[in-house]
């Protein structure tokens, strides 16, 4: 064996040792959450065994029913599904308009829209709170949803417009001659072609809305309307030491995210990287 090959072998081994160490550090806290969620309170307090002595799946039933995580989970599902649906519909419609159609102030409007992506606006939850209060939408599902939908507008329009810009116009021109309406062009031709970009949009916004906390904190007081991130903090505040139940709640909040992530990781990783490098 030549020296070069041996050197490469050693370098590769060192590389793997480093990478595996970091990988374990990433996974361990999540594993610990899962494992602790299946223990008894006693076990959490007295032993540090990696796996539970007896797997208490009933913790999850209790978390769902007694600790209201079922309600929170369904709320989160509702906010995510409805929010993402409206974001995708509204932004694709607008992006198509910006990419293909002529109207007054098109460029100015587009730049104003995009500028909100670039300028950091901390504390915007204050005027949003006041706005919802004036509209009578404070502590309502509609109010929170409107904030979420508005939060996804600029990025969605930016992403989809650049996608539509790169689509060849010929198909649409042919369809236009055949008597297809403008809306028909968008609905039947552009939208189906934009499926990859729409997938990115759906995934990114789902994660954002599912994981959102600050607006839910500001807008909602009524526990029956809270999404799971907010519910977790309510639970943590009331039952401060019930760790297995809290870990079960955390797991319930995490499972959808991890499942979507594992199935869609190519999309997510590409979306993040591409989005960042373009911007």
């Amino acid at each position: 064996m030549n020296v070069h090959l041996i050197k490469k072998r050693i370098l590769d081994s060192v590389t793997h040792v480093i990478l595996i160490t970091v990988a374990l550090t990433c996974v361990f806290p999540v594993f610990w959450m899962l494992s602790s969620s299946l223990k008894t309170q006693d076990e959490v307090f007295t032993s540090m065994r990696l796996l539970p002595q007896s797997w208490r799946f009933s913790n999850y039933l209790e978390a769902f029913v007694q600790a209201d995580f079922g309600v929170y989970f369904l709320n989160s599902l509702f906010y995510t599904v409805v929010g993402v649906f409206f974001i995708v519909f509204i932004t694709s419609l607008a992006a198509y308009g910006f990419a293909r159609l002529e109207f007054w102030g098109r460029n100015a409007l587009f730049y104003i829209l995009i500028s909100t992506l670039l300028i950091p606006i901390p504390g915007v939850f204050i005027p949003l709170y006041l706005l919802l209060k004036n509209l009578g939408l404070l502590d309502t599902r509609t109010g929170l949803l409107l904030c979420y939908i508005a939060g996804g507008l600029a990025f969605g329009i930016f992403l989809l417009k650049s996608f539509f810009d790169n689509l060849p116009k010929e198909i649409e021109e042919a369809a236009l001659i055949d008597g297809c309406s403008r809306f028909g062009l968008y609905w039947r031709i552009a939208l189906p072609l934009a499926r990859p970009a729409l997938a990115t949009l759906v995934i990114m916004n789902s994660l954002t809305i599912w994981n959102e906390f600050l607006l839910a904190l500001v807008v909602l007081q009524d526990r029956t309307k809270m999404p799971i991130q907010r519910g977790l903090m309510v639970f943590q505040g009331t039952f401060i030491t019930d760790y297995p139940m809290l870990m079960a709640g955390l797991t319930i909040a995490t499972i959808p995210v991890v499942v979507i992530y594992l199935f869609m990781q190519k999309h997510i990783i590409k979306g993040i990287a591409a989005g960042a490098l373009k911007g």
Binding site: C26, V27, V30, L207, W210, N211, F213, Q229, L232, M233, L250, A253, T254, V257, V258, Y261, Q265, I268, I269, I272
Partner: peptide, 10 residues
């Protein structure tokens, strides 16, 4: 990329 997809609260 697993930690970045988890929520801040979790």
């Amino acid at each position: 990329f697993l930690p970045p997809v988890l929520s801040g609260i979790v």
